[in-house]
Simulated scan of single mutants.
Amino acid sequence: MSQLEITKNEILSAFHFRHATKEFDSNKKISASDFDYILEAGRLSPSSYGFEPWKFVIVQNMDVRAKLAEYATGARKQLQSASHFMIILTRLPEDMVAGSDYIQRMLEHVQKLSPEILQAKQNNYDDFLKTRFAIEDDPRVMFEWACRQTYIALGNMMTAAALIGIDSCPMEGFNREQINEVLVAEGIMDPEHFGISVMAAFGYRLHDPSEKTRRCMQEVVEWVE
Rank of each mutant, 00 (worst) to 15 (best):
K112R: 13
I38E: 01
R43G: 01
P46H: 04
D126K: 15
M96N: 10
P93Y: 02
T73M: 09
L79D: 00
V110C: 04
Y125N: 13
S48D: 11
Q78A: 08
K29G: 00
V57L: 13
D101H: 12
A69R: 06
A66T: 15
A41P: 05
K29Q: 15
A82E: 01
G99A: 08
S47Q: 04
S33I: 09
I38L: 13
S81Y: 02
Q104N: 15
E108P: 01
D101K: 13
G74Y: 10
Y125D: 08
E52M: 09
G74I: 09
I88A: 10
I87Y: 03
T73R: 08
K67D: 12
M106R: 14
N124P: 00
N124Q: 14
G99L: 05
K67G: 02
D101W: 05
E52T: 10
N124V: 02
S83D: 14
P115Q: 04
H84C: 04
W54C: 03
Q80T: 10
Q78F: 09
H109W: 06
A75N: 05
E52C: 11
E94N: 13
L107M: 14
R76Q: 13
Q78R: 14
L39P: 00
K121D: 09
E108R: 13
E70C: 06
G99K: 06
K112W: 01
V97N: 13
L92D: 02
